[in-house]
Amino acid sequence: MTLKVLVVDDSSFFRRRVSEIINGDPRLEVVDCAVNGKEAIDKTVKLKPDVITMDIEMPVMDGITSVREIMRRQPTPILMFSSLTHEGAKATLDALDAGALDFLPKKFEDIACNRDEAVSLLQNRVKEIARKGIFLRRSPVLSPAKSTATTLEKPDSLKKRHSLTEKIKQSKTPVQRAPSVFKATGKRYQLLAIGTSTGGPVALQKVLSALPANFPLPIVLIQHMPATFTAAFATRLNGLCNITVKEAEDGEMIRPGSAYLAPGGLQMMIDGRPGSSRIKLVDGGERMNYKPCVDITFGSAAKTYGNGVLSIVMTGMGADGREGARMLKSAGSTVWAQDADSCVVYGMPQAVAKEGISTEDLPLSRIAERIKVELNLV
């Protein structure tokens, strides 16, 4: 089945460039283009595309306003294009709050080493977020900043989920579906570590904003995000949360009740001993696919804290976090995963679930509740 895409941008050059890339995949088809946000709304209602690519700065109506109105009238998966500037970061985060599912830098050379890589990245991202369309169209539209997307799956994906469930049941550590009432396991923790990618900004906001100011653990956050975005994202989270959220700095001591977001373009490690550990930032490395990388931070947490880490792998494309989570589990730490229904992309959580690494399968709407129960905060 071909996925229909609406391309929205006031630049004829960029519309043509994006359209050529999307049409280069036999599973994708650009059904039309729009030159501003108002036209995007009208064509979305008329054409009912499976995915929209949207610019932020446009005449007549900007992309953020358009996203908000589309999500009200004809909810559709939206991929934003943004500039890699501080202002671009703030605008992109506003677009995600308005309901967009993901974003890519507008300059493809900023996200890929060559044209083929950029083409593949854009095509795959469009196909991934298209999977959320069924849920968006059948569910009441809620404020994305205060809720999360869930998916209603097609029959073929239900078969895959059934197959996955059977495999998990046969693993040594079966994943437990969320019960109606959570109970603490009695374990003691010294660190909370969360890894996310696609869909992560809204998911992290939902979880962290529900934690109390007296949260007893330090938190490390690894979100796949460009370097110019992480500072703006940390600032936004800090303004919305009861806990302190900041972009991590090299050498700073991590303290309870504070969350440290890994800077884009670097790798974040934890050095020292429990109770006196510090952030260590190192070069991203040319051979690393992700900068920051969940595996690296999780792996360093396993070495520093042993069995004292509560870790969660949340929405995201790929399998980053699987090997780091494996190290944490081997050290005796706890690994949970976000469930398929509430992920924008069920890639990273699936990677730890199908390997039997995670022990609980949690909907996004209940992750904060589960954390508080586990730490005896409720």
Rank of each mutant, 00 (worst) to 15 (best):
S19K: 04
R17Q: 06
A227Y: 00
T315A: 14
A149L: 14
L3T: 04
L136G: 00
R322V: 10
G251I: 03
V378D: 12
A184W: 08
Q170W: 06
E57K: 00
I64Y: 06
M71G: 03
P363A: 14
N289E: 03
G63V: 00
L84D: 00
L164Q: 13
P218E: 14
R177P: 00
C241I: 05
S333F: 12
T65M: 13
G308K: 13
T148M: 15
S83M: 04
G195D: 08
D320M: 10
A234Y: 11
H224N: 09
L47R: 13
K172N: 09
V207D: 12
M71E: 07
F108C: 03
V313W: 09
K43P: 01
L79M: 03
I270S: 03
L3C: 07
E39T: 01
E69A: 01
Q74S: 12
L101K: 13
I168V: 15
G347D: 04
G251P: 05
G356N: 09
R73A: 07
M317S: 11
I168N: 08
K127A: 08
N242Y: 09
I111F: 11
A368Y: 03
A112G: 04
M327D: 15
M54Q: 05
V119D: 02
V313S: 03
Y189L: 12
K43F: 04
N114W: 08
T85G: 00
L328M: 08
N289I: 02
L261D: 06
F229E: 07
F81M: 09
T92R: 00
S330L: 08
C113N: 06
D339E: 14
Y346L: 04
K154V: 08
P256N: 12
L152W: 01
A353H: 02
T165I: 02
Y189I: 10
I134A: 03
A259P: 00
I168E: 10
P212M: 13
C241G: 10
K146L: 05
R177H: 07
K132C: 12
K127M: 15
S143Q: 06
D25F: 02
Y305Q: 03
L158H: 07
L3M: 14
A259N: 10
R115F: 01
I254P: 06
A234N: 03
A95W: 05
P263F: 09
L208D: 03
P363Q: 01
A325H: 09
D50I: 04
I296G: 02
V378L: 08
D341E: 15
V45I: 15
V67P: 10
K160S: 08
D62P: 04
I222T: 15
Q205P: 00
Q74F: 13
L375R: 05
I21F: 09
N376E: 12
K159H: 11
P201R: 13
G284D: 12
S276V: 01
Q350G: 11
V126P: 01
A40S: 05
G199F: 10
Q350S: 14
H224I: 02
K38T: 05
V175K: 10
E109Q: 11
D361R: 09
V31H: 06
W336K: 07
Q74Y: 07
P226A: 12
P363C: 05
I279L: 11
K106V: 10
G264E: 11
M1A: 06
V18N: 07
V313E: 13
A337S: 14
H162A: 15
L362D: 00
K372P: 00
L364C: 09
V60L: 01
F81R: 11
R370S: 05
A227T: 03
A118Y: 03
R287W: 04
Y305V: 12
G24K: 07
T151I: 15
I52L: 13
E360S: 04
